[in-house]
Design a protein around this nucleic acid. Structure first.
Lengths: 228, 228
DNA sequence: AAATATATTTAGTCGCGACTAAATTGCGGC
DNA sequence: GCCGCAATTTAGTCGCGACTAAATATATTT
């Protein structure tokens, strides 16, 4: 029961994240496709199927053959615990040890699986129970609640609108360095100045700085979230 | 080449530690018995044999059938790196996060295998490149040198002698709490007041404190080291 | 509605690192 | 110098989590 391997935790986390993305895009589907999961985890589709069957047997997901997978409450709780570990670690590494913005993700990716509850508590306490990590992603609370102010995708903003950046994607170091260089970080205010004809790109400027135009692909502009 | 599993690292560490103990006891043997290794790792003897064969093939140890095993320079370097991780982590957890003395070992035991070189450097720098962990065990340097002042076993001290505690065993939390309660920690000065007839116990008092007599078994008094 | 394309699962294998049961080797006592 | 016991190794198995090749189910096109 207390024994969840790193592999199991990675799958649950991936199902959660992909399910969230699905939910936000269209209505409510939440069901995650096997291939999408496999691609995200860098694993072959048959491997994903095998693990999904196992996780179903463990009561952590519901797997409908040829349809996809969905977290059970137990699986969701576990996924959120791992994500809490990950984001607390990112925050801790950045603030306490000065690890650069674009490196914390990879460090946290391995540490998240071995962080004890005791250490988790100490880290959270020392940071003052933060609600978001350095990239602006919400840190789930221990009870499973996810603090989440109403945010929207940068991509969905109309031309001319201004908003404050809330979250940026965390998994790709190169993207992070690009965003950092152009001043787009959680907290900066940006204005949408133009958008290309078909699927972008979206042009924004960081208000206050050099007011430089910065081009973002549709995919990137969809994974940057803003508060209005 | 860069891929050393946690299991491999644990074996190398155990061979190193057992080899050190051997060396200090009698002349120079250093060769570690399969069963001793298995017992220390909580593993069956056949499992140990299998792994020893594998490590021999990897060039990390020399395994003479039915005789025992010994580290090669490469294996020794790897073992020292893991031990460095372990002891740096213990020190960091105790000082930066306030983890109690008797808990740091178990936390470090899992973290040591996933600590990146980058994080290791940051931790070492933040701590000011310490040379010993909270239990007084020397922290190997990156180049493989082990800082080690001439120390002797508390057990080997004659009755009446005084000395300063340098190291205490780190792996058993109960022992640590006992020692902590009686004031025996690295840095405290102790006097040997008596020794039992056959294999102890050894009676010591922590000078300065309540001057309470404290009884130590031979095994324990052999794993406490003092500087004179 | 049939044909084709794509997604998913089944079947069978592999490496790792543990295990038990059964040989083997080597060492201390006589 | 032989004998018995303890230490060690061999032989064979298992669970985990990955893989490839091949079969099957779903989706899309016509």
């Amino acid at each position: 029961m207390t024994s969840t391997s790193a592999a199991v935790e990675d799958y649950l986390k991936a199902v959660y994240v992909l399910g969230e993305e699905e939910r936000d895009a269209d209505g409510r589907s939440r069901v995650v496709a096997t291939t999408a999961l496999a691609r995200r985890l860098g694993v072959s589709p048959p491997s994903a199927t095998n693990m999904l069957k196992k996780l179903d047997a463990l009561g952590l997901i519901v797997h409908s053959r040829y349809r996809g997978a969905e977290l059970t409450p137990a699986g969701r709780a576990l996924a959120l615990e791992v994500i809490r570990h990950h984001r607390l670690l990112e925050t801790y590494l950045a603030t306490a040890l000065g690890v650069p913005w674009d490196e914390v993700h990879e460090e946290a990716e391995v540490l998240e699986h071995v962080l004890s509850e005791g250490l988790e508590d100490r880290i959270a306490a020392q940071l003052g129970d933060p609600t978001a990590d350095p990239h602006g992603h919400p840190i789930p609370r221990r009870d499973g609640r996810v603090p989440d102010a109403g945010q929207s995708r940068l991509w969905d903003l109309p031309v001319g609108a201004t908003a404050t950046v809330a979250r940026v994607p965390d998994s790709d170091a190169r993207t992070l360095r690009y965003l950092d260089a152009t001043g787009i970080r959680p907290g900066t205010e940006v204005r949408v100045v133009a958008v290309g004809p078909v699927d972008g790109p979206l042009f924004v400027t960081a208000i206050g700085s050099a007011e430089e135009r910065c081009a973002l692909s549709k995919v990137l502009a969809e994974s940057i979230w803003v508060a209005r």
